[in-house]
């Protein structure tokens, strides 16, 4: 396993809760010295994470910006630029959508899903990649609904497919700068986002029945893989690791 050198900076989009929070902790425990945590509105979650990580000696800058709005991304990038001259790791861990059949998704719902869950990834990379030195790395979090049908998941499923495609394109476009771009495709995780999904108990039951490992994933499972992609895997770019306990094999 590779180890981190001193003075490492990471930007985690959607880093205050859920998977992003687990990634923030994981990186902080493994030597990242400055974390930028981007979130939308839950100030208390961002503040409690900041307190927790700062008490472990990590510098944390929490940034409240709406990644669904292009101007906000530009302002956020300007602010980051004033606070650091280098970003070693960039993680996109944000999604916003409505859970219902694709046939019933309205244009504004589609646009918002794409803007927050996909466009923001490309836009942030465009804005910040010049701060990323050779050997730095980008990871985006996708989901298994990008590859196969999941009831009520159409809008986000399509958005995640586009996200994965963007990973491949950016990987090639940034390869000359020796910036690697990869993704994690996650299966259903246990945790806070679960109740938003319709008939979630039934979805959990069916998912577990088809999952060879016999359990749902956790945010820490994802954080572990993200860390590997960020810090190891030095010849890997434009690829996705599937973490689903074997679900997609059955």
């Amino acid at each position: 396993m590779s180890t981190m050198r001193p003075e490492r900076t990471a930007v985690i989009l959607g880093g205050s809760r859920g998977v992003g929070r687990a990634i923030a902790r994981y990186l902080a425990e493994r030597g990242v010295t400055h974390l930028f945590i981007v979130f939308l509105e839950q100030v208390e979650a961002a503040e409690s994470l900041t307190r927790e990580l700062e008490s472990c000696g990590v510098k944390v800058t929490s940034l409240q910006y709406n990644l669904g709005v292009a101007e906000d991304i530009q302002t956020m990038a300007e602010r980051i630029r004033k606070l650091t001259s280098q970003i070693d790791y960039l993680v996109h861990c944000v999604a916003l959508t409505t859970f219902k059949p694709l046939m019933r998704v309205r244009p504004n719902q589609w646009d918002l899903t794409m803007a927050v869950s996909t466009r923001s990834f490309v836009h942030v990379v465009q804005q910040l990649s010049d701060l990323m030195p050779r050997g730095s790395s980008v990871v985006a979090i996708s989901s298994t609904g990008s590859q196969r049908f999941n009831a009520n998941y159409g809008a986000l499923g399509v958005s995640k497919s586009a996200l994965e495609s963007a990973v491949r394109y950016l990987a090639v476009e940034l390869a000359g700068k020796e910036i690697r771009v990869n993704g994690v495709i996650s299966g259903l995780l246990g945790g806070a986002s679960l109740p938003l999904f319709p008939e979630i108990q039934e979805v959990v039951k069916q998912t577990l029945e088809r999952t060879p490992s016999g359990r749902l994933g956790t945010p820490d499972d994802i954080a572990e893989a993200v860390y590997f992609l960020l810090t190891g895997a030095s010849w890997m770019t434009g690829q996705h690791l599937i973490l689903d306990g074997g679900f997609c094999l059955t």
Binding site: V69, Q109, L112
Partner: peptide, 22 residues
């Protein structure tokens, strides 16, 4: 739906130049 309220909220923020908090 709830996502529409967010969409409307974001449009209100852009139009009127303030942010909803917390």
């Amino acid at each position: 739906e709830s996502i529409d309220i967010l969409d409307i909220r974001f449009a209100i923020e852009s139009t009127f130049g303030f942010k909803f908090q917390n």
